[in-house]
Structure formats: C-alpha cells, structure tokens
C-alpha cells in the first residue's frame, strides 16, 4: 500500500516537472523572438536548446535529447556568432573604404 502511494507520488512529480519545463520552453521561445540584438538571441537560444533537451529526457527520448543538446549548444550559437563577426568585419572595412575615398 505504501509502495503504491510512493509510485503515485513519483508519477505526479513527473507530470509537474514536465509541465514546468513546458511553460519555461514557451517563455524562452517568446523571449528569443522579442530580443532585438542577435548576440543576446544566441545565448537565449542555447539555453532554449538545453531546456528542450531536458524536456525530451522527461518524455523518455534519450537519443533525441542528445542530438538537440549537441546541436543547440555547439552548432547554433557558434554559427550565429561567427556570422555576426563576419558581418561586423565587412562593415568596418566598408566604413574605412568610405573614409579613404
């Protein structure tokens, strides 16, 4: 009887945990859209990827969680920040060309 009560508590805790992470995913997704600076967006997107990965673990999908963690932490912020750096270096070069005209 006590074991059944213990298992019921674990199942309720899992449902509460899933719902909390789901709400946080919605909040961080909205925050990522309403940021105007791409540098801040890249940091929020990396944390958003980690939240998604935790939610996938809570939904019993470990391989997808690993994929999303690896993509969200390595590939996406790296590409965004490198693209920004490249754009900035072109802007500096164009400003310098205009000054020398």
């Amino acid at each position: 009887m006590a074991a059944v009560g213990c298992i019921k508590k674990k199942k309720e805790k899992m449902i509460i945990f899933q719902n909390i992470i789901l709400i946080m995913i919605a909040v961080f997704g909205t925050a990522a859209v309403f940021m105007h600076s791409p540098v801040r967006q890249s940091i929020i997107l990396s944390f958003y990827g980690m939240l998604l990965s935790i939610y996938f673990i809570a939904l019993k999908a470990p391989e997808v969680a690993l994929s999303e963690m690896v993509v969200g932490a390595v590939v996406i912020p790296l590409m965004i920040l490198l693209a920004l750096a490249k754009v900035k270096s072109y802007t500096i070069e164009n400003l310098r060309n205009k000054k020398q005209k």
Partner: peptide, 24 residues
Amino acid sequence: MVLHAHLTPGGGFQGGVIIASAVI
C-alpha cells in the same frame, strides 16, 4: 558515443559533433 550506437543512446551524428567540438 559513435562506437556504442547499437547498445546505448547515442549514435553517429551525436558523437561526430562532440568530436568536432573538441577541435573547436
């Protein structure tokens, strides 16, 4: 992670990106 794809969660893609992140 690449070499234990058929036994535990993981696989070629996940392990490949982790190897790339070591070089980065």
